[in-house]
Design a protein around this nucleic acid. Sequence first.
DNA 1: CAACATGGTTTTGTATGCAAAAAACGAACA
DNA 2: TGTTCGTTTTTTGCATACAAAACCATGTTG
Lengths: 238, 238
Amino acid sequence: MESIQARAAESGGVTSLVERRLLHEEVIDRLRDMIVQGELAPETKLNERVLAAQLGISRTPLREAFKYLASEGLVELLPNRGAVVAPLKPGKVKEIFVVLGALEALAGELVCRNATDADIAEIRALHYQMVAHHARGELAPYFRYNQQIHIRLVECAGNATLAQVYRGLNAHVRRARYMANLSHERWDAAVGEHEEILAALTARDSARLQALLRDHLAKKLVLVMEALNANKPPMKAS
Amino acid sequence: MESIQARAAESGGVTSLVERRLLHEEVIDRLRDMIVQGELAPETKLNERVLAAQLGISRTPLREAFKYLASEGLVELLPNRGAVVAPLKPGKVKEIFVVLGALEALAGELVCRNATDADIAEIRALHYQMVAHHARGELAPYFRYNQQIHIRLVECAGNATLAQVYRGLNAHVRRARYMANLSHERWDAAVGEHEEILAALTARDSARLQALLRDHLAKKLVLVMEALNANKPPMKAS
DNA sequence: CAACATGGTTTTGTATGCAAAAAACGAACA
DNA sequence: TGTTCGTTTTTTGCATACAAAACCATGTTG
């Protein structure tokens, strides 16, 4: 793991023009990435001493980052027993998808009303990027653009609170999303759904957009649940 | 302000049966209460040294509490300039109400499907308590039961994530809710709306319940916005 | 008088120290 | 073998110490 402290040194003595970010904020972002990207698996114990050493910082800002991420729900704090990466229980994932559904539906309504043409053009651009990666069979970049489209769509609804809550919940299940292995058919279908979503957005057809988003999410949930249950058959029976 | 440390001492030497809570958690709850209850007004600067002294603790757990509450959005962290109670801007409040509306609607749908009869009976009991306080013109307890009804309703939807997000956003605007001074007519009307809500819930009429909740919230928003704009006419013009 | 510089003070951010709780280890024992 | 107790070791939680950044109050200069 690369030290965070190194970042300060590498700018060559001259404190860079950009505002020097606070250490604990840097740590928050770094840990969040590591958790969401799956680099830190669910239920991983987060040992303060070793993590601090790896990041090249002291325990204090690390502990502060734990608290922040605990409030986001990505980390769980066990009294007197430290922090662990929040477990990813199927039931929880289902719950989150339900809430995300309601939020995306709201976003669909608002985005049709509030998005500028430039906003929609930007989403369209992301869409074509995603399509290109799909055509080339590049899964990881496809996922990235897919995520970006959904997030950008919510952001363009013009309600920062909505966007923040959405991002927070989405970060949780992003870990699970990667696990859902797409069949070739499902992948094609998903892209087709995105085409429809883009069309509804372009037409600013709120009702249709909401329906499409709901449907799209519901289908994703099925896949994710399958992947979760496949990876985790915690049955004690022989 | 009363010291938190005192709590430990007052149990008379015998460490109480209940698990000894962690200091920073205690502080989180305490500060959250103080903010939501309005004891700490929006934009109040939170000086680490004096707050820590008042609470009878060191700066470390206090700072950890700041981080947690910052993630909740009740506190704002200004790099190198400490923490302040999150401002309560009319625009933000409006945003939150919109999201709360979507969440309550979702809760209305789920609660009709998932709530037990006992759940509904409990909400009914809260309702009658609230009505009693309305009859006696006791505003503060009325508000308390009112809040409890809404929160309990969301909790009975059987989606813990939904409940958590709802409580978080609600905590924000609770500060503003108290400011909205009810006219006699509006107060009566609000109670009437609650009667209808209870009826729809009892009948498990999902669509109707959703509509009622939306309408109820929208009316509340109007009042809150009026109160906010009345208290804060930030116009520079003479 | 306004804008800016400057020294001291306060306040924040991070590291470190210390006590208490939990985990790990191992010996005694059934 | 497996269990239970006691001891050692590790880890957490909180307090404190120190350095750097922001603030403040004056004085200086144009």
